[in-house]
Write a protein that binds this DNA or RNA. Structure first.
Lengths: 103, 103
DNA sequence: TTGACTGATCAAGATTGTTTGATACATTTC
DNA sequence: GAAATGTATCAAACAATCTTGATCAGTCAA
Protein backbone atom coordinates (compact mmCIF):
# COMPACT_ATOMS: atom_id res chain seq x y z
CA UNK A 1 0.00 0.00 0.00
CA UNK A 2 1.88 2.99 -1.31
CA UNK A 3 -0.71 5.37 0.06
CA UNK A 4 -0.27 4.18 3.63
CA UNK A 5 3.48 4.70 3.40
CA UNK A 6 3.00 8.24 2.17
CA UNK A 7 0.36 9.01 4.76
CA UNK A 8 2.38 7.64 7.65
CA UNK A 9 5.40 9.72 6.61
CA UNK A 10 3.27 12.84 6.54
CA UNK A 11 1.70 12.15 9.91
CA UNK A 12 5.13 11.39 11.31
CA UNK A 13 6.23 14.87 10.29
CA UNK A 14 3.50 16.28 12.52
CA UNK A 15 4.24 13.86 15.36
CA UNK A 16 6.71 16.16 17.04
CA UNK A 17 6.12 19.23 19.19
CA UNK A 18 9.09 21.09 17.76
CA UNK A 19 7.84 20.64 14.22
CA UNK A 20 4.32 21.70 15.17
CA UNK A 21 5.81 24.88 16.60
CA UNK A 22 7.72 25.47 13.38
CA UNK A 23 4.52 25.07 11.39
CA UNK A 24 2.76 27.43 13.76
CA UNK A 25 5.39 30.05 12.94
CA UNK A 26 4.81 29.58 9.23
CA UNK A 27 1.05 30.07 9.44
CA UNK A 28 1.42 33.81 8.90
CA UNK A 29 3.48 33.40 5.76
CA UNK A 30 6.93 32.47 4.65
CA UNK A 31 9.71 32.90 7.14
CA UNK A 32 13.48 33.05 6.92
CA UNK A 33 15.44 30.40 8.82
CA UNK A 34 17.31 33.20 10.58
CA UNK A 35 14.00 34.43 11.98
CA UNK A 36 13.09 31.02 13.38
CA UNK A 37 16.08 30.04 15.50
CA UNK A 38 15.55 32.93 17.91
CA UNK A 39 11.80 32.61 18.61
CA UNK A 40 11.97 28.81 18.74
CA UNK A 41 15.07 28.88 20.94
CA UNK A 42 16.88 26.07 19.21
CA UNK A 43 20.24 25.42 17.68
CA UNK A 44 20.61 26.03 14.01
CA UNK A 45 21.54 22.46 13.11
CA UNK A 46 18.57 21.08 15.00
CA UNK A 47 16.19 23.49 13.30
CA UNK A 48 17.69 22.49 9.98
CA UNK A 49 17.05 18.82 10.77
CA UNK A 50 13.38 19.42 11.53
CA UNK A 51 12.89 21.68 8.53
CA UNK A 52 14.27 18.91 6.36
CA UNK A 53 11.92 16.36 7.91
CA UNK A 54 8.96 18.62 7.15
CA UNK A 55 10.23 19.33 3.64
CA UNK A 56 10.79 15.63 2.88
CA UNK A 57 7.20 14.99 3.88
CA UNK A 58 6.13 17.72 1.48
CA UNK A 59 4.53 19.82 4.18
CA UNK A 60 6.77 22.84 3.64
CA UNK A 61 8.68 24.31 0.69
CA UNK A 62 11.91 26.25 0.63
CA UNK A 63 12.98 29.20 -1.50
CA UNK A 64 16.54 30.40 -1.70
CA UNK A 65 17.32 34.08 -1.98
CA UNK A 66 20.94 35.12 -1.75
CA UNK A 67 22.34 33.63 1.37
CA UNK A 68 18.97 33.26 3.03
CA UNK A 69 16.43 30.48 2.79
CA UNK A 70 12.72 31.10 3.26
CA UNK A 71 10.33 28.33 4.25
CA UNK A 72 6.57 28.28 3.76
CA UNK A 73 3.64 25.90 4.19
CA UNK A 74 2.52 23.73 1.29
CA UNK A 75 -1.24 24.05 1.52
CA UNK A 76 -1.86 21.42 -1.14
CA UNK A 77 -0.28 18.74 1.01
CA UNK A 78 -2.10 19.93 4.12
CA UNK A 79 -5.35 19.64 2.16
CA UNK A 80 -4.44 16.13 1.07
CA UNK A 81 -3.84 15.22 4.70
CA UNK A 82 -7.28 16.56 5.59
CA UNK A 83 -8.75 14.36 2.87
CA UNK A 84 -6.86 11.33 4.19
CA UNK A 85 -8.10 11.99 7.70
CA UNK A 86 -11.67 12.43 6.49
CA UNK A 87 -11.44 9.13 4.65
CA UNK A 88 -10.56 7.27 7.83
CA UNK A 89 -14.01 8.11 9.14
CA UNK A 90 -15.95 6.81 6.16
CA UNK A 91 -17.01 3.16 5.89
CA UNK A 92 -15.18 1.16 3.23
CA UNK A 93 -18.13 -0.64 1.70
CA UNK A 94 -21.62 -0.73 3.06
CA UNK A 95 -22.25 0.33 6.61
CA UNK A 96 -22.31 -2.70 8.86
CA UNK A 97 -24.51 -2.29 11.88
CA UNK A 98 -23.48 -5.38 13.75
CA UNK A 99 -19.88 -6.35 14.37
CA UNK A 100 -18.87 -9.86 13.38
CA UNK A 101 -19.12 -12.18 16.35
CA UNK A 102 -16.36 -14.35 17.67
CA UNK A 103 -17.64 -17.76 18.71
CA UNK B 1 2.03 24.24 25.11
CA UNK B 2 -0.16 21.37 26.33
CA UNK B 3 -2.06 21.33 23.06
CA UNK B 4 1.06 20.62 21.02
CA UNK B 5 1.92 17.66 23.21
CA UNK B 6 -1.53 16.21 22.77
CA UNK B 7 -1.57 16.87 19.03
CA UNK B 8 1.86 15.34 18.47
CA UNK B 9 0.85 12.20 20.36
CA UNK B 10 -2.22 11.84 18.21
CA UNK B 11 -0.34 12.36 14.98
CA UNK B 12 2.29 9.91 16.17
CA UNK B 13 -0.43 7.28 16.50
CA UNK B 14 -1.14 7.70 12.78
CA UNK B 15 2.53 7.76 11.84
CA UNK B 16 2.74 4.03 11.29
CA UNK B 17 1.52 1.91 8.39
CA UNK B 18 0.43 -0.94 10.63
CA UNK B 19 -1.75 1.34 12.71
CA UNK B 20 -3.26 2.96 9.62
CA UNK B 21 -4.21 -0.53 8.43
CA UNK B 22 -5.82 -1.26 11.79
CA UNK B 23 -7.84 1.94 11.54
CA UNK B 24 -8.82 1.03 8.00
CA UNK B 25 -10.25 -2.23 9.35
CA UNK B 26 -12.27 -0.35 11.94
CA UNK B 27 -13.88 2.01 9.43
CA UNK B 28 -16.76 -0.41 8.90
CA UNK B 29 -17.57 -0.64 12.59
CA UNK B 30 -16.27 -2.24 15.73
CA UNK B 31 -14.12 -5.27 15.37
CA UNK B 32 -12.99 -8.03 17.70
CA UNK B 33 -9.24 -8.44 18.22
CA UNK B 34 -9.59 -12.06 17.14
CA UNK B 35 -10.89 -10.86 13.76
CA UNK B 36 -7.93 -8.55 13.26
CA UNK B 37 -4.89 -10.80 13.72
CA UNK B 38 -5.78 -12.94 10.69
CA UNK B 39 -6.49 -10.25 8.07
CA UNK B 40 -3.57 -8.10 9.25
CA UNK B 41 -1.25 -11.07 9.40
CA UNK B 42 0.46 -10.15 12.61
CA UNK B 43 1.24 -11.71 15.93
CA UNK B 44 -1.20 -11.17 18.70
CA UNK B 45 1.20 -9.37 21.03
CA UNK B 46 2.25 -6.98 18.29
CA UNK B 47 -1.35 -6.18 17.42
CA UNK B 48 -2.02 -5.60 21.09
CA UNK B 49 0.87 -3.16 21.25
CA UNK B 50 -0.43 -1.11 18.34
CA UNK B 51 -4.01 -1.17 19.62
CA UNK B 52 -2.74 0.22 22.90
CA UNK B 53 -0.82 2.98 21.14
CA UNK B 54 -3.98 3.99 19.29
CA UNK B 55 -6.07 3.74 22.44
CA UNK B 56 -3.62 5.83 24.49
CA UNK B 57 -3.87 8.52 21.82
CA UNK B 58 -7.65 8.39 22.18
CA UNK B 59 -8.20 7.41 18.56
CA UNK B 60 -9.89 4.12 19.35
CA UNK B 61 -11.98 2.77 22.24
CA UNK B 62 -12.26 -0.75 23.59
CA UNK B 63 -15.24 -2.63 24.89
CA UNK B 64 -14.94 -5.88 26.78
CA UNK B 65 -17.51 -8.60 26.34
CA UNK B 66 -16.83 -11.91 27.95
CA UNK B 67 -13.40 -12.98 26.95
CA UNK B 68 -13.39 -10.88 23.80
CA UNK B 69 -12.42 -7.26 23.32
CA UNK B 70 -13.96 -5.12 20.61
CA UNK B 71 -12.24 -2.01 19.30
CA UNK B 72 -13.87 0.89 17.48
CA UNK B 73 -12.95 4.33 16.16
CA UNK B 74 -13.45 7.37 18.35
CA UNK B 75 -14.94 9.83 15.89
CA UNK B 76 -14.80 12.71 18.35
CA UNK B 77 -11.02 12.55 18.48
CA UNK B 78 -10.76 12.17 14.71
CA UNK B 79 -12.86 15.30 14.38
CA UNK B 80 -10.62 17.13 16.81
CA UNK B 81 -7.63 16.13 14.71
CA UNK B 82 -9.34 17.53 11.64
CA UNK B 83 -9.87 20.79 13.49
CA UNK B 84 -6.21 20.86 14.54
CA UNK B 85 -5.09 20.27 10.98
CA UNK B 86 -7.43 22.97 9.69
CA UNK B 87 -6.02 25.40 12.23
CA UNK B 88 -2.50 24.91 10.93
CA UNK B 89 -3.60 26.51 7.67
CA UNK B 90 -5.10 29.64 9.19
CA UNK B 91 -3.01 32.72 9.91
CA UNK B 92 -2.45 33.44 13.57
CA UNK B 93 -3.10 37.16 13.54
CA UNK B 94 -3.52 39.29 10.46
CA UNK B 95 -2.39 38.00 7.13
CA UNK B 96 1.09 39.25 6.37
CA UNK B 97 1.76 39.66 2.69
CA UNK B 98 5.47 40.29 2.88
CA UNK B 99 7.85 38.09 4.85
CA UNK B 100 10.18 39.84 7.28
CA UNK B 101 13.53 40.49 5.67
CA UNK B 102 16.86 39.40 7.01
CA UNK B 103 19.47 42.06 6.55
C1' DT C 1 40.88 37.61 -1.96
C1' DT C 2 39.75 37.54 2.63
C1' DG C 3 36.64 37.38 6.26
C1' DA C 4 32.07 37.16 8.01
C1' DC C 5 27.69 35.16 7.76
C1' DT C 6 23.68 31.72 6.60
C1' DG C 7 22.28 27.27 6.34
C1' DA C 8 23.15 22.17 5.32
C1' DT C 9 25.43 18.01 6.53
C1' DC C 10 27.92 14.63 9.19
C1' DA C 11 29.33 11.51 12.96
C1' DA C 12 28.52 10.13 17.55
C1' DG C 13 25.73 9.59 21.39
C1' DA C 14 21.15 9.73 23.64
C1' DT C 15 16.44 8.74 23.39
C1' DT C 16 12.39 6.63 21.82
C1' DG C 17 9.73 3.24 19.19
C1' DT C 18 8.95 -1.49 17.31
C1' DT C 19 9.19 -6.51 17.19
C1' DT C 20 9.60 -11.03 19.25
C1' DG C 21 8.76 -14.76 22.40
C1' DA C 22 7.39 -15.92 26.97
C1' DT C 23 4.32 -15.47 30.56
C1' DA C 24 0.31 -13.77 33.20
C1' DC C 25 -4.55 -12.84 33.76
C1' DA C 26 -9.45 -13.33 33.13
C1' DT C 27 -13.25 -15.81 31.17
C1' DT C 28 -15.53 -19.70 29.54
C1' DT C 29 -16.29 -24.65 29.06
C1' DC C 30 -15.96 -29.20 30.58
C1' DG D 1 -11.86 -27.60 39.99
C1' DA D 2 -8.94 -28.14 35.37
C1' DA D 3 -8.15 -27.17 30.68
C1' DA D 4 -8.71 -24.14 26.87
C1' DT D 5 -9.16 -19.66 24.91
C1' DG D 6 -8.59 -14.51 24.10
C1' DT D 7 -5.99 -10.70 25.30
C1' DA D 8 -2.54 -7.88 27.83
C1' DT D 9 2.01 -7.27 29.58
C1' DC D 10 6.89 -7.89 30.13
C1' DA D 11 11.89 -8.11 29.02
C1' DA D 12 15.16 -8.19 25.61
C1' DA D 13 16.71 -7.44 20.96
C1' DC D 14 16.56 -4.48 17.37
C1' DA D 15 15.62 -0.22 14.69
C1' DA D 16 14.56 4.44 13.93
C1' DT D 17 14.68 9.13 15.37
C1' DC D 18 16.48 13.16 17.84
C1' DT D 19 20.17 16.04 19.68
C1' DT D 20 24.74 17.96 19.84
C1' DG D 21 28.94 19.93 18.23
C1' DA D 22 31.95 20.27 14.36
C1' DT D 23 32.69 21.16 9.78
C1' DC D 24 31.57 22.43 5.01
C1' DA D 25 29.66 25.06 0.97
C1' DG D 26 27.70 29.10 -0.79
C1' DT D 27 27.02 34.16 -0.70
C1' DC D 28 28.12 38.73 0.18
C1' DA D 29 30.88 42.87 1.31
C1' DA D 30 35.21 45.15 2.07
Amino acid sequence: MKTAENASRRFHALADETRLKIIDRLRDGEECVCNLTGPLGMRQSLLSFHLRTLKDAGIIRDRKEGRWVYYSLNFDVLDEMLTTLEALKKPRKGLRLIAPRCE
